[in-house]
């Protein structure tokens, strides 16, 4: 049996209770919305990029503990990073969540983000953890459209 504490680690619960960088900037430079229609998670990520570097990043929204904590920890992780570094973090994070059997440290130094390693045991929850990252990616690419976990290619989960 999987211990629920592996999933709901104290760091995750803490970031869920008190999300960091949870604010709308006065003059948003880039932003994108993310939406998971299966559970109703909605998030807006704001990012300020200057000379290829993330100078500010914040978010607003509502969702489950995994998605809120993931967004919060993401903002801490990518702040001050270059776009390439942020992309590489997302790749490492994605790898951490989805690649069975691989060690938690294969995607480079993920630091605090490794608290999400337990999510790997809960395939239905992977999207909760990656929503903020997909939304950040969209904001960085300056796409105005809402990111949905369910489009354009619907997944088999969900339903009435």
């Amino acid at each position: 049996m999987i211990d629920l504490r592996e999933l709901y680690q104290e760091v995750i619960l803490d970031h869920n209770r008190q999300p960091r960088n949870f604010r709308v900037p006065e003059h948003p430079q880039r932003q994108a919305e993310g939406y998971n229609p299966l559970c109703g998670d909605k998030i807006t990520v704001y990012v300020h990029v200057d000379q290829g570097q993330i100078r500010d990043v914040s978010f607003k929204g509502a969702g489950c503990a995994i998605s809120q904590a993931s967004a919060s920890l993401m903002t801490e992780a990518v702040l001050g990073k270059s776009l390439a570094e942020a992309r590489s973090l997302f790749e490492g994070f994605h790898h951490l969540l989805t690649d069975e059997g691989s060690g938690p440290s294969t995607g480079g130094d993920l630091g605090k983000l490794e608290v999400f390693s337990g999510v790997r045991e809960y395939p239905m929850r992977v999207k909760c953890a990656t929503l903020a990252w997909h939304t950040l990616k969209s904001a960085l690419e300056d796409e105005s459209a809402t990111v949905s976990t369910e489009s354009p290619n619907p997944t088999p989960s969900g339903g009435p």
Binding site: M1, L4, L38
Partner: peptide, 20 residues
């Protein structure tokens, strides 16, 4: 507590509910 988290915890105890 978001319903999704409730659903995951309940499932670990064998209780199947719908969240969403």
């Amino acid at each position: 507590v978001h319903p999704h988290d409730v659903g995951t915890i309940l499932d670990q105890r064998g209780v199947a509910v719908r969240v969403g």
